[in-house]
């Protein structure tokens, strides 16, 4: 009886497996390394700095745009009217820790006006967000 060699069966899509492995690794890398955080609603360019006083407790975040206008969550006010908004905002957020994310070109006197309003509301210390200086 004549015997034929059986054709060798190649597993389909064999070459795809390493690709999928690499892609999954990339996904895991981005999941672990990236911090998603709350989306930033106000566009500010942070000033550069070197000191980092990070604390694990989440502060209430106040944004200041480069024209000096202040954002308390969804509400915006000029810095002179900040003391009217500060108390309500802190009560809403349920914290007395405040972080200010101010644009590097925001007027320093507006920032100080906002900090004075915070002092009036009983906040003794605030943290200013900065980026790592080169």
């Amino acid at each position: 009886m004549i015997e034929f060699d059986e054709p060798r069966r190649r597993p389909p899509y064999e070459t795809m497996v390493p690709l999928i492995n690499v892609v999954f690794l990339l996904i895991i890398f981005f999941i672990l390394v990236g911090t998603m955080g709350p989306t930033q609603e106000v566009k500010v360019d942070l000033p550069a700095g070197q000191i980092d006083d990070k604390n694990s407790r989440q502060p209430a975040l106040i944004y200041m745009e480069k024209d000096g206008f202040v954002w308390f969550g969804k509400n915006m006010a000029p810095p002179e009217l900040a003391d009217m908004m500060v108390k309500n905002y802190l009560k809403e957020q349920g914290t007395d820790r405040v972080a200010i994310s101010a644009d590097l070109n925001a007027p320093a006197d507006s920032l100080l006006t906002l900090m004075e309003a915070l002092r009036k509301a009983g906040v003794k210390e605030v943290t200013l967000q900065t980026t790592q200086a080169q």
């Binding site: 892609v23 990339l26 996904i27 981005f30 999941i31 390394v33 990236g34 911090t35 998603m36 955080g37 942070l46 700095g49 070197q50 000191i51 980092d52 006083d53 990070k54 604390n55 972080a99 994310s101 100080l112 900090m115 004075e116 309003a117 915070l118 002092r119 009036k120 906040v123 003794k124 210390e125 605030v126 943290t127 200013l128 967000q129 900065t130 980026t131 790592q132």
Partner: peptide, 25 residues
């Protein structure tokens, strides 16, 4: 699609915190 989503949404920039005492008005 997942890969693209994570590449576009993740932020690597970590903000630092500088503690400042609030001034009296």
């Amino acid at each position: 699609q997942l890969l693209l989503f994570f590449m576009l949404t993740t932020t690597f920039m970590q903000a630092q915190m500088l503690t400042v005492t609030t001034p009296a008005a």
